[in-house]
């Protein structure tokens, strides 16, 4: 009796997990290269005369046993691409240029609005929603990882799946 109950609960838990992972996999984009994986790169659409843009990446994961080091980025769409961090100190926002970023073994970094972002300066054309562009992440020793950045409309928020649906109807 007890064993049966145990068994059914287990099945229930397993199916729930499977269900959740299927849901979260819809629309998720993963780019894997050697020991690193980058998921869901995106940027906000910009207006026509915009000179700058920001790229966010939901997660960059290092599944290796050694630390990896990001030394830079490049994209054809902009003249200058820099890693930035928006820091709020004494109620004042400041964008700081970061030269390189180290990700320890089995560690991840997130690039979210209001924090870490890849800043595009000198845009050659505006970022148009529902289109995409390639971006290269340069790793020391490992080499380059090329990812496709999806351009979302300005109201899109990475954290809210409900907004994501909103974009598509």
């Amino acid at each position: 009796m007890n064993q049966k109950l145990f068994f059914t609960t287990n099945i229930l838990i397993l199916t729930t997990i499977a269900f959740v992972s299927i849901i979260s996999d819809i629309g998720a984009k993963n780019y894997t290269y050697k020991q690193v994986n980058a998921s869901d790169p995106w940027a906000r659409a910009t207006s026509k005369l915009a000179k700058t843009g920001a790229v966010y990446i939901k997660n960059i994961h290092n599944k290796g046993k050694n630390a990896v080091k990001i030394t830079g980025f490049s994209a054809n769409i902009a003249k200058k691409v820099q890693l930035h961090n928006t820091v709020v100190k004494n109620e004042v926002a400041k964008m700081q240029h970061i030269e390189f970023l180290e990700i320890g073994p089995n560690k991840s970094v997130q690039f979210n609005p209001g924090g870490l972002h890849i800043m595009l300066m000198g845009l050659k054309r505006p970022l148009e929603k529902n289109s995409h562009f390639p971006l290269i992440i340069k790793f020391e020793k490992l080499g380059n990882l090329e990812i496709m950045v999806d351009i979302k409309n300005i109201g899109w928020s990475q954290k809210k799946p409900s907004n994501y649906k909103h974009v598509h109807h």
């Binding site: 906000r44 910009t46 609005p113 300005i154 928020s157």
Partner: peptide, 17 residues
């Protein structure tokens, strides 16, 4: 300022919603 692609659109978008 309009050259700001991160903090400013994030804040104005939060305000819009």
């Amino acid at each position: 300022y309009t050259f700001c692609p991160d903090a400013c659109p994030t804040a104005l978008n939060n305000l819009t919603i």
